[in-house]
Design a protein around this nucleic acid. Sequence first.
DNA 1: CACGTATATACCTTTTAGAGTATACAATGC
DNA 2: GCATTGTATACTCTAAAAGGTATATACGTG
Lengths: 114, 114
Amino acid sequence: MESVFEIIAEPTRRAMLSLLVSSQLSVGEIERQLRVPQPTVSKHLRVLREAGFVESTVDAQRRLYRLKPEPLEEVEAWLAPFRRFWSAHVDALERHLDRMGPSAPPKRKTRRKR
Amino acid sequence: MESVFEIIAEPTRRAMLSLLVSSQLSVGEIERQLRVPQPTVSKHLRVLREAGFVESTVDAQRRLYRLKPEPLEEVEAWLAPFRRFWSAHVDALERHLDRMGPSAPPKRKTRRKR
DNA sequence: CACGTATATACCTTTTAGAGTATACAATGC
DNA sequence: GCATTGTATACTCTAAAAGGTATATACGTG
């Protein structure tokens, strides 16, 4: 599993990240909140940890997990160029049609169907 | 493939979306720019189309593909709650440690190791 | 030291996504 | 009608991710 995008493709992992926005949590707390078997939680946490999404500190027998911002910032960064695209929202498509890139209709009888 | 997150987990698909930010493109143009076999392009385009990331219009033998904003807005929406988290960036972690959620250290001898 | 709790890991199985190859389909131009 | 270009689809194969179950490890307490 390389990219941050593959990491957040998994629904349970996204849920875990969302939980951790509010506060750090132990494995058991996550397990109870998400109603998911403990090994599953641990395995997903491992993936998240190795990808830098979370880090943990030891608290007696527990591990407290908290978010780390960097990987999600990567997602944010990738998303950025598209933002201009939906900022206009409703008429975005209309403007796009006018922009017309390198694929501008070549010679043919039927012009753009519409 | 259900969620938008699984869709953008695939690197080639992300590349295709990024290409389409600038302008609409035909299958062949995408194929050449990404140096990827045509069936691969078509298959990924199908996935993107069915998930609402792109739409196509017919232009003689070609299909011109262009972006649709909605699905990426979904990603944006999911990401939003985390934004406050990295806005402070450097000291985000520090502040987080102070916030200390429900996992606040219980009774024990060794307090937070650090 | 024996026991309970908290978490991690190992192993096995199922499922599915993606690649590759070949082929079908559609439109065009001669 | 036939060849060519552009795109979609069908089929097969492989790899890998996720789940389930069992077990290991670590800590704390009596």
